[in-house]
Write a protein that binds this DNA or RNA. Sequence first.
DNA 1: CTGCATCCACACGGATACTG
DNA 2: CAGTATCCGTGTGGATGCAG
Lengths: 124, 124
Amino acid sequence: MPHHIPAAPPSSPPSGTIEPCPMVSFVNLVSGKWAIPILYRLIVIGVAVRFSELQRAIAPITQKELTRQLRLFERRGLVRRQVYAEVPPRVEYQITALGQSLRPTLDSLADWMRTHGEALAGDD
Amino acid sequence: MPHHIPAAPPSSPPSGTIEPCPMVSFVNLVSGKWAIPILYRLIVIGVAVRFSELQRAIAPITQKELTRQLRLFERRGLVRRQVYAEVPPRVEYQITALGQSLRPTLDSLADWMRTHGEALAGDD
DNA sequence: CTGCATCCACACGGATACTG
DNA sequence: CAGTATCCGTGTGGATGCAG
């Protein structure tokens, strides 16, 4: 998403802490051109994988985008990053339990899309 | 979402028709700053509502964005647009059955977010 | 090998003015 | 009232070069 959905709570109370819409927060979490491809690939793989291995699996993603998105997921606790002090450097990424817990929800998205997707007129 | 997820199928076969990832397609569908607020509002309301009424309900959305997003949903068959030849002009929008069918899926997103959302570190 | 820094194109989304 | 047209700031994401 584009820009990225700064989260605008519909009809917010006059004052105090505003509570962001969970659905909007969710979409924010998995927005971005490569978010789902990366996340789902890590979920399916399950075990730790090297950066370059991941990049080949999700080609043609750029290093910049892969790094950026992985760091975002890491901050969210969806992905764990393991750095090995070696030469050449080795960095491995693995989905966390929290990340894995997303699977059923993501599958339900896919299910709806597969079921009703063909009814959708313009796919752009 | 960031600019908007042009849909890049991971690991595409050498030739023939490429099949887009359903999850990516789904996120594309509900990406954009105001997509979810508009869609869910229409789902909850259920009946036809006037443009201005909708705009007030989802404030502070601009006319431009509301129009653009509604037209997108219309093309996808999620929203029906009814124009009345009157003065002053009256245009009403209503969620379709296809749009309503999204509700359980959207609710499951919200459920996951409410359940695991607090575990997520950075909310930016 | 990993990933940061830089430059850049462009699409999203806001503000405003104008039309039927 | 509903919608279009225009201008513009800014985020996103690609390409490339460089560093540890």
